[in-house]
Nucleic acid binder design. Structure first.
Length: 553
RNA sequence: GCCGCGUUCGUCUAGGGGUCUAGGACGCCGCCCUUUCACGGCGGUAGCACGGGUUCGAAUCCCGUACGCGGUACCA
């Protein structure tokens, strides 16, 4: 299946990729895949002041992590093993033949480019590299009388706003009503303009919005939407620094890149009519538009960095990467935040989602980010993975960060290093802990006792289970198991021995079980104790029992 | 303030005039399983914002109100 459908994800490199941005990217990706179209990545770096050096790299890495590989756009710089096999859509092969290196990018002129290539033939995919185009179209608009030069300083504009501000009009606009009082090419004489130019005065180019018109368009999510042009302002098209604003740049690029469907967040709905006007004045056919509902914070309002942090919700995709969240879980969860396949299915692979995805099934109202549900997805996908695979990832995690309480691999003891490098041991640990952790790093926290004898014992568990006669019984158990051969130190046998002791003593199972658990793991809860002891091994278990008796008396 | 968009269980949603005494999932509660904690299984709790219409019949269509959200920059 193939089609001319082209969509784009066009983030601004003003910060780390936001989780909401990832959802927008995801919906674009799914739409493209569903229709056999093309998914374009474009970097909207027209704001010099807010440019963040590391942002673009983060965007590329985050998309790669999520498995949303653009068909066109700046090339991904580094992909680790996990992300390189992440593309299950088969889009990769198609792209290779299309790689078309952008000359400018190869020179590495801008920070953030680092000499990267681009793939795709509609580049460059950085707006900062397309300045001449915007200027040319701005000029075209001026020539046609749909735009004009404005020389007002920000102070002058602010002054106008203050003077005109009333309770009914709290935010006066630069618009058909006010523009004739301002300093622009509509109000100044030829000579005055000439003088300003000679002085080298700064200017912007503004869109001349018509008065008394209604701009109507059909949004693929919302249906018919209409705005009165009287509510629009004379949007700045070209800024004083020569850079275009979002509005001009996005319209020009979407047209030049042959974007057929603009799928973006609802925060853009209000500016859509300006874009429609621009398409009209430029003589272009506007693309279909779809404005997605916003992702909301549990406390209300758009999920912002601040709000999210207050709620304990990671907001940057990088946080999810670093936190070793399951990417399938994050993607699945995000997909369902505003979209549903129409039936009761909740667990969907990327390919399934692509198959089912349509904009008709996207909801209209904002969706609150439910972190608990995300964790449910995370647990699900975590448990779907094999013990060996998870063990492998844990091994990498440990060599990268050490263990909880230790800040690096170097700070670990030789014994710990040996365990951390033992695939079989790690895999066994994963098997025992898999059902009780939510995220990969938690294996190391919940399973701390697999790397180290307990330094302290959980107070509540001790109080509850460690009685005066406990040491005697633990000792009895210890003596029985210490005599076992390595090959006999197995869960089944260990349980047998315990059963024999409690029967001989005429006590309940838990009477010995609880203190034993405390002695071995330091806690009152956890995975099957006998399996745990088997994995730890005879010497270690005996050692721990001795230590517990010594410490707890 | 103005403009725009929205409103089904606490949350994500199914539902597009009768099949809805509104279905699923997360959460929460209970029971079962069980050496603990979990996993799992079973069951339960809980919702069509409100008011008018239209219609034989409305969660579904229309209008209004309320509430929420977005926009209102030489930011995207």
């Amino acid at each position: 299946m193939n089609s001319d459908i082209r969509v784009r994800f066009a983030p601004s490199p003003t910060g780390l990729l936001h989780i909401g941005g990832l959802r927008t990217a995801l919906y674009n990706y799914l739409f493209a895949r569903h229709h056999g179209g093309t998914f374009v990545l474009r970097i909207e770096d027209t704001d010099r002041a807010r440019y963040v050096e590391e942002a673009e790299q983060d965007i590329l890495e985050s998309l790669a992590w999520a498995g949303l590989h653009p068909d066109e756009g700046p090339a991904v710089i580094s992909t680790d093993e996990k992300t390189s096999d992440a593309d299950a859509t088969g889009g990769e092969a198609k792209n290779v033949s299309r790689i078309d290196y952008d000359a400018d990018a190869a020179k590495g002129q801008r920070p953030g480019d680092t000499g990267l290539g681009y793939k795709g033939t509609f580049g460059p995919y950085h707006q900062s590299k397309r300045r001449e185009r915007y200027a040319a179209f701005a000029q075209q608009l001026i020539d046609a009388g749909h735009a004009y030069y404005a020389y007002d300083s920000v102070e002058e504009i602010e002054k106008m706003r203050e003077q005109l501000r009333t309770p009914e009009n709290q935010n006066p606009k630069y618009d058909p009503q006010t523009r004739m009082q301002m300093r622009n090419s509509l109000t100044l004489s030829e000579q005055e303009i000439q003088e300003l130019l000679e002085e080298g005065a700064e200017y912007v180019v503004r869109l001349k919005v018509p008065g008394g018109e209604t701009v109507q368009f059909d949004d693929m999510v919302r249906g018919s939407v209409s705005f009165d042009t009287d509510g629009l302002d004379d949007q700045v098209l070209l800024k004083a620094d020569g850079m275009p604003t979002y509005h001009l740049a996005t319209v020009v690029d979407d047209h030049e890149m042959k974007i057929t469907h603009v799928i973006r967040g609802e925060e853009w709905l209000s500016s859509a009519p300006k874009h429609i006007l621009l398409y009209r004045y430029l003589g272009w056919e506007p693309p279909a538009m779809a404005h997605l509902p916003l992702i909301m914070s549990p406390g209300g309002g758009k999920l912002s960095k601040r709000k999210a942090e207050e709620e304990g919700i990671p907001v940057n995709v990088r946080d999810y990467r670093i936190g070793h969240y399951e990417r399938d879980a994050v993607v699945n969860f995000l997909a369902l935040l505003g979209w549903s396949p129409g039936d009761d299915r909740e667990l969907l692979a990327l390919e399934e989602m692509a198959e089912e995805f349509t904009l008709e099934r996207v909801g209209k109202s904002g969706a609150i980010f439910d972190f608990k549900k995300l964790m449910w997805f995370n647990e699900h996908y975590l448990r779907e993975r094999s013990d060996d695979e998870l063990a492998e990832e844990l091994m990498a995690l440990i060599s990268e960060r050490g263990l909880p309480g230790y800040d690096s691999l170097e700070s670990l003891s030789e014994a710990q290093k040996a365990l951390a490098g033992d695939r079989k041991y790690l895999s066994g640990m994963v098997r025992l802990l898999k059902e009780r952790v939510s995220r990969l790093p938690e294996f190391l926290e919940s399973g701390a006792f697999f790397f180290e004898a307990p330094k302290e014992y959980n107070e509540k568990a001790v109080k509850k289970g460690w009685k005066d006669d406990t040491p005697v019984r633990i000792t009895a158990y210890r003596d029985r198991i210490s005599g076992l051969n390595d090959g006999d130190f197995r869960a089944y046998g260990l349980k047998q021995i315990l059963t024999e002791i409690i029967e001989a003593e005429g006590i309940g199972f838990g009477k010995l079980m609880m203190p034993l658990r405390v002695a071995v793991t330091g806690t009152g809860s956890g995975p099957d104790l006998f399996e745990t002891m088997e994995l730890l091994g005879r010497d270690e278990v005996v050692h721990r029992l001795d230590a517990a008796i010594a410490k707890l008396g």
